[in-house]
Each structure stands twice: as C-alpha cells, then as structure tokens.
C-alpha cells in the first residue's frame, strides 16, 4: 500500500476519502460485530456520507455500506491513503 501517511481515527475521515484499518480499540460485542463484518487490520474502507445531522456516518467496506456512530468510529485507528481511490 503506497501513499501511507499518518494514523487517524476512522471518525475523522471526511466523506470520499479512503483509508486502511490499523487496529480496533473497541471491546466486547461491538468489537466482534465489527470484526465479523470484515473490518479487520489491513482492510480498506471508504467514508461515504454522513447522516443529515452529521452522525452516524456510512462507510463502504467489502462492497457493503455500514453506518457507525462517531463515538464508535473514533475507536478505530486507520492509516489514510492518498492514492487509495482506485483500491476500493
């Protein structure tokens, strides 16, 4: 993966940008839910849109659109990709 930059939280991603999952700081059932949906370290994820009032946010991951609240997305670390546009 070229173009790797700094480590961010998934929640800080703006719509349209693509990033790669680094690690999950979540715990319990939510952590398992997220993992089972294929959001595992290394996965590419694209921020698609925010809800009408800014939260939750919909992400495209493995061809599915998944909405997460900002509190939860804040606990997922990602690496922003500059040239990730074609990857997903």
């Amino acid at each position: 993966m070229k173009g790797a930059e700094r480590i961010d939280a998934l929640a800080d991603l703006s719509p349209g940008s693509v990033c790669q999952i680094v690690s999950l700081e979540l715990s319990g059932l939510l952590r398992r839910r997220i993992l089972d949906l294929g959001i595992v370290p290394g996965t590419l994820i694209r921020c698609i849109r925010r809800g009408p009032s800014g939260d939750p946010t919909a992400y495209l991951v493995r061809e599915t659109l998944i909405a997460l609240r900002s509190e939860d997305a804040a606990q997922i670390s990602v690496r922003t990709l500059l040239n990730g546009e074609e990857c997903i």
Binding site: D36, L37, G38, R62, E63, T64
Partner: peptide, 9 residues
C-alpha cells in the same frame, strides 16, 4: 453475490 467477501466468511 453482490458482497461475496463478507458472505464467504
């Protein structure tokens, strides 16, 4: 078939 990866899991 439209989201094969998550289903193959």
């Amino acid at each position: 078939a439209t989201c094969l990866e998550r289903n193959l899991n």
